[in-house]
Simulated scan of single mutants.
Amino acid sequence: MATCDVCGEYENLPYQCKRCGQTFCSEHRLPENHDCPGVGEWSDPGGVFDSGFDDGGGTGGSTGGQAGGSGGVVSRVKRRFNRATNTGGLVSYVRGNATYAILAAMWVTFLAQLVVYHGVSVSLHNTLFVLQSDALGNVWTWVTSVFAHSPVGIYHIIGNSVVLFFFGPLVERAVGSKRFTAFFFGAGIAAGLGHVLFAIATNAPPTGVLGASGAGFALLGVLTVWRPNMQVLLFFVIPMKIKYLTWGIAIVSAFLVVTSGTGGVGGIAHLAHLIGFAIGLAFGKRNEGLARSAGGAGGVQMGRMRGPGGPGGPGGRF
């Protein structure tokens, strides 16, 4: 028994799409019925969808039959090779599952951080992973800072992982893996740069940011537009509509930014949260049509899933 990734219905005999790897009921099992990300790009270069009716096409006696059988074996081998290298295999598990690939990369990066921070030097760690207001020329940190999290505790990465795990697939399913990946990193990079540039503009002391919270708040912003009444569980306990959660966090963050004058309070880059949230709202508004087509008349479907609300926790990060 499993839950359909489109409508949320429980299915005793679920179908798994070989293209995107997700699970569906009988109504949504066909690629065109669940808006499979690879359908629009499919060109069948290796004849993967070939019916195989001509594999054993010898109709002129035993010799023709043997030749056809041999050709059929070769054809089947070619098709399997094409699945593994061009349109399926390991690649197919990433296509349509960019959320989980990003999540895995975050944890691999976190392990690398622990090694460098605790085993080599803090300075090298900051050079590799932290977007710093006094080192904007380290352009790689524009990206690595989105993957990286506070190496002095685990709550930071857990909070962002929870948000990405529960809410990322909803957005990815609607807009496709490529657009989702570009949106996630674009929002994360813009949030980080916005925070450090604000610190520079206000002559604040040198600051640095790291973490996927900016991108996470962007996801929450998208769903605030698409499904404002979607119920989530704050701290896994308190039920509330997502619009109350996200706008409540935004108001508190805005108050803290204004009162602090630096965009960060207690080591948390609240301005980065606001930038990510604003980007998410704009992206959600611009792509409302995709959300409706992904989930039918009701828009993006949550099924029976309830997500926890909001990343957070102590540490110098966003």
Rank of each mutant, 00 (worst) to 15 (best):
G263S: 04
V94R: 15
G280P: 00
G68L: 04
F53H: 12
V94P: 01
G248S: 03
S70N: 12
K78A: 13
A67M: 12
R292V: 03
A148N: 03
G295D: 02
N86R: 15
V74L: 15
T23I: 09
E11N: 11
P239F: 07
F277L: 08
G208C: 05
A67Y: 14
G267A: 08
L223T: 00
D50Q: 09
C17G: 05
R83D: 06
G276E: 05
L290H: 09
S293V: 15
C17W: 03
T85S: 10
E288H: 10
N82R: 14
V146R: 09
F167G: 01
G312V: 08
A291D: 02
T246G: 04
L197D: 02
M106E: 06
I275Q: 04
V143H: 02
G47C: 08
T59F: 15
P314F: 14
R19F: 03
A148P: 00
S51V: 06
S70H: 13
F277S: 06
V257R: 09
T246W: 08
K78M: 13
R79A: 04
A297Y: 09
N82L: 10
L164R: 04
G280V: 10
Q113S: 08
F129D: 01
S92N: 05
Y155S: 14
G21I: 06
E11G: 06
H149D: 09
A282R: 03
G57N: 14
G248V: 07
I189D: 02
L13W: 12
E41A: 15
G64F: 13
G312K: 15
R179P: 02
F24T: 00
F147N: 06
G267D: 01
M302D: 03
F147A: 08
A294H: 10
L271G: 02
I158D: 04
A84P: 05
H156T: 13
L281S: 02
I275F: 02
K18C: 07
D44I: 03
A250M: 05
V222K: 03
S150K: 13
V171L: 13
M240N: 01
I279L: 09
P206Y: 11
N33L: 12
R83S: 05
H149N: 11
M106S: 05
